[in-house]
């Protein structure tokens, strides 16, 4: 061992602390992280091989009869959805017309990219997942993510071939929502449980009932407007307290969905500069 090994360790620890501080405070270490992502990518790809092999085996081993049945079911479902889509076209046109009247231009349909979940963060104190699309597919920080049932979360870290997603159930996450029935606005924060969100700062008099659908209001500038977020499960007015306790269940299947959609919208997404929101504090 080198005679000054202790001092060398101390230097490394101090340098690493400085690095952590810089990574925490500033953005300019993001490219470094991105480049190191190339070194980690092979191992990450290899780690999902057993999963894809199992999936492939499952697919190729399913019976012809089952496939035919599934095909029939899907055809029926497709038929129903197509009928809805027909109505959708006219509604969209009508919507555009009305928006023109209001002289506001808004895109109704967003561009999406299909991705699948490759890993779940093992840390039990956070709700994050990894997906198999990254910077090389145009993913950016702050990008909203949906599953087939509703909003799931947003991208918080982009690597070349994968990204990290913070789910709406994380305790560090909040999303502006509104009640679909009457447009009452609220903020839904994660509780750390995958099946529960909490609406904060809801006045006791607010018109929110159990069973109400909460949709994203688009007010934060991060999420697109109008996607389902959660269903209200519990409303409690405690006399003497200024805010009601409102619990809701996410509509997205946070712990089950394997295939997700990355949404590209013009309006949503771009993260506001740090200076903008730090000033207010």
């Amino acid at each position: 061992m080198h005679p000054l090994q202790g001092q060398r360790v101390a230097v490394i620890v101090v340098l690493a602390m400085l690095l952590m501080w810089a990574d925490d405070q500033y953005d300019w270490l993001k490219p470094v992280r991105y480049v190191i992502g190339y070194a980690v990518a092979p191992a990450q790809k290899a780690a999902v091989v057993p999963l894809s092999v199992a999936e492939w085996l499952g697919d190729s081993a399913s019976l012809r009869r089952e496939l035919l049945k599934e095909n029939k079911q899907l055809a029926a479902r497709n038929f129903i959805l197509e009928r809805k889509a027909q109505r959708m076209a006219s509604l969209e046109a009508e919507n555009m017309e009305l928006r023109d009247l209001l002289s506001a231009s808004d895109q109704v349909d967003d561009r999406v990219l299909v991705t699948s979940v490759t890993a779940v963060d093992p840390d039990p104190f956070t709700q994050q997942i990894l997906i198999d699309k990254g910077g090389s597919d145009g993913v950016f920080i702050g990008q909203p993510i949906l599953d087939a049932h509703g909003l799931l979360g947003q991208v918080i870290e982009v690597l070349p071939f994968s990204s990290r997603v913070l789910m709406i159930a994380d305790t560090n996450h909040a999303i502006p929502v509104q009640v679909n029935r009457n447009g009452v606005r609220a903020i839904a924060t994660g509780t750390g449980s995958l099946t529960e969100l909490e609406l904060i700062y809801v006045p006791n008099t607010a018109d929110i009932r159990e069973g109400d659908m909460l949709v994203s209001s688009g007010l934060g500038g991060r999420y697109p407007k109008g996607y389902p977020v959660a269903t209200v499960t519990h409303v409690e007015n405690v006399p003497g307290q200024s805010f009601a306790t409102v619990k809701a269940e996410p509509t997205a299947k946070l712990d089950r969905s394997r295939h997700l959609l990355l949404v590209f919208t013009d309006k949503a997404a771009r993260v506001p500069p740090v200076a903008l929101w730090k000033e207010g504090q």
Partner: peptide
């Protein structure tokens, strides 16, 4: 650090230790 999404440098300290 990149693999686990922690602050860059955290695992450098741990591995050095």
């Amino acid at each position: 650090d990149v693999e686990q999404g922690t602050l860059l440098g955290l695992h450098v300290i741990l591995v050095a230790f």
